[in-house]
Amino acid sequence: MLEHGGRLRQAALHYGIAESAWLDLSSGLAPWPFAIPPIPERAWARLPETDDGLEQAACLYYGAQNVLPVPGSQCAIQLLPRLRRSGKVGVLSPCYAEHAEAWRRSGHIVREVMDQEVDFYLDTLDVLVVVNPNNPTGLNLSPERLLEWHARLAQRGGWLVVDEAFMDNTPDLSLAAETWRTGLIVLRSFGKFFGLAGVRLGFVLAELRLLKLLAEQVGPWAVSGPTRIVGQACLLDTANQALQRERTALASGRLQRLLGLHDLLAQGGCALFQWLITPHAERLYDFMAQRGILLRLFTSNSSVRFGLPGDEADWLRLEQALQAYTQVSTKGVS
């Protein structure tokens, strides 16, 4: 299995620091989870029903005609490659590593491309996978550019798969409303923006025919009854959605400024994280971890991703650790 952020228990064991003592900034989740509504006993006692209003709430929230709830968008990432014969797949990289891995495991030929290379390779591809906004770089591609790529792929029966896991803060840039188009598939993550990764919920937005094929792969009762209740309540909670957008945007800007004050200039980011490339990424990661602050390290391009602190005590703790790192770095001591 690929490495991911959020492996707090492993870090606690490695550094000898109790789990409860950590500030976990590794997973790119909103640090303010939505309130859990009361879960009636029947949700635990009965198999989940698919006419409980979750799909309608998701269509309303995303502005899409059709949605398929799945137990986390990771499920869809792994199953989508099964719906096509082996072919050539482009993955806009660097990005969430599970995309390329899933297509490779299903026997497809995968080429990882940068955004400026897409136009050159696109007509040789059967599928193009894009994470928008990108994780971890924060690159945001315009809907117009993505729809142009989709049109070129669709002419040959190809797909454009857009992972919008970090799109909730900028819904005007989403392609959700365009997923009536054949060959356009949008993945949405629930846990990141709503701060509830543990419920394991995601949505696939696409034309109905493709969703039916994917549903056969997912199988029945994939999303639990309690999860469906939580998901519907949060998707309809417009007041807290507006609050979440405001405070995540403010916190992301504050984080970018804080890093800059310590000569750690973020090369990218979005409302839920900031990302920077540095030749000292491993040293920075280890320095913070020794102080109980967990970051997301990417060794392939020597970079780190900072998630958002949740309260003033967390901000102070991060600031003090950054000050200590700056002092040590200035002295040239590792």
Results as ranks from 00 to 15, higher is better:
D24N: 09
R9A: 15
F273T: 04
F273G: 04
C59D: 02
G90L: 06
V89M: 10
Y62G: 00
V162C: 11
Y61W: 14
A12P: 10
W103A: 01
L92M: 14
G107A: 00
L297K: 10
L160K: 01
A102V: 01
T299R: 12
A45E: 15
E49A: 15
G28R: 12
A64Q: 13
F190T: 11
G158M: 08
Q241H: 12
Q267A: 03
T137P: 03
R152C: 03
S26V: 00
D52T: 10
A100S: 14
L80F: 09
L259H: 03
E144T: 14
W149S: 03
F120E: 08
T238R: 10
P279H: 12
A215C: 09
A76E: 04
S73D: 07
L236G: 01
W149F: 05
T50W: 11
V304S: 03
V304W: 06
L23C: 02
A154G: 05
S300M: 09
L160G: 01
L250M: 06
G195R: 04
I277L: 14
S20A: 15
G158N: 05
R145T: 14
R84M: 06
Y62C: 04
F194D: 02
S252Q: 00
R296M: 09
V218H: 07
S86M: 11
E319L: 00
G332E: 00
E148A: 06
Q155W: 00
K212S: 07
F287I: 05
D263M: 05
W159T: 03
A45N: 12
Q116T: 13
E3R: 08
D237S: 07
L255G: 02
L211F: 09
A30R: 03
R291T: 04
P71M: 03
M288Q: 05
E117T: 13
A249Q: 13
S329F: 11
D52C: 12
R9V: 15
I229Y: 04
A154K: 06
N140S: 09
L211M: 00
L79R: 05
G5L: 08
D123R: 14
P143M: 04
G219D: 14
F190A: 07
L175C: 11
G269R: 05
Q217G: 02
H280Q: 15
N135Q: 13
Q244V: 02
D24A: 07
S303V: 03
L250I: 08
I277T: 09
P69T: 13
L205C: 13
D52E: 11
D119E: 15
A102E: 02
R317M: 09
W275T: 08
P33N: 05
Q323Y: 02
A289Q: 09
V162A: 10
L272R: 12
F287C: 02
Q232F: 08
P33T: 13
